[in-house]
Design a protein around this nucleic acid. Sequence first.
DNA 1: TCAAAAGCTTCAGTCTCTGGAGATATCTTG
DNA 2: CAAGATATCTCCAGAGACTGAAGCTTTTGA
Lengths: 137, 137
Amino acid sequence: MLSIGEMSRRSGVKVPTIRYYEQMNLIDAPERSAGNQRRYTHAALDRLTFIRHARDLGLSLEAIRELVRLSENPAMPHDEAHRIATSHLAAIRERIARLKRLEKELTRVEANCHADQAGDCNIMQVLADHGRCETEH
Amino acid sequence: MLSIGEMSRRSGVKVPTIRYYEQMNLIDAPERSAGNQRRYTHAALDRLTFIRHARDLGLSLEAIRELVRLSENPAMPHDEAHRIATSHLAAIRERIARLKRLEKELTRVEANCHADQAGDCNIMQVLADHGRCETEH
DNA sequence: TCAAAAGCTTCAGTCTCTGGAGATATCTTG
DNA sequence: CAAGATATCTCCAGAGACTGAAGCTTTTGA
Ligand SMILES: [Zn+2]
Ligand SMILES: [Zn+2]
Ligand SMILES: [Zn+2]
Ligand SMILES: [Zn+2]
């Protein structure tokens, strides 16, 4: 059996976060020692590692909750896993697109400033008036 | 003088958010009507519009707070505005880079699945084991 | 055996809002 | 001018995903 500190070291998830996941019902409440400390199985470590990796890939806890449920029923069709992955991918692509627009706009704005004072600074003027932007964002 | 609803309609910032900005000292507490309702000047509307646009460009309220301070002292050098813009740009570029790595990994993982059941689904297997990933992320 | 390390619970804070409850104010229409 | 509709007021809680501290108890290992 593993203590919560062991779990943390092996999974890379911080101790308070593990307790938080338990509270959010992402992981099962484990057994306790005689002195009320958490004692985990290796299966619980695998679960936590799975969650950690999914978080690293940017999935929400809500999405992970569904994936965890799926991973417990390996006989189920994997459609739902793909649905989750696809919609996450779409969200990522949207965020990339938005950030690229912002990057472009900000780069242009900054390059176009030849002022001495804040009052004439192109950045300040663009911020005050979206009409000076070249793109929507 | 403008009511808070007018301010909201004209700036696109929701009413509770305007009150929140006041609480966070991003905008000054306005005058009040006889019945204790907020009454704003057109200068306050300009300020709010500035904040809104900066938010749309992804700046944090902390960064905006500094920009607002700058915009009140138009005689100051604009170095600080550029420092803020540059560091924001760097953050945007980092986020783009990270999201692109995620996109690549997820696209590859999903395309490589030819399973029938969740137990064999490539997505689930990759999530369980980062060793199956091709990139760090 | 006894101190250090690790664990426990509970609460508060992060950031940027957003929404609701219940009371009051203002505006519109008859 | 009165009634009814709309807007606003304050205060509080919740979202997501944690993170940290306070103050106490348990476990570990020299
Ligand atoms: Zn400038
Ligand atoms: Zn703009
Ligand atoms: Zn699959
Ligand atoms: Zn990975």
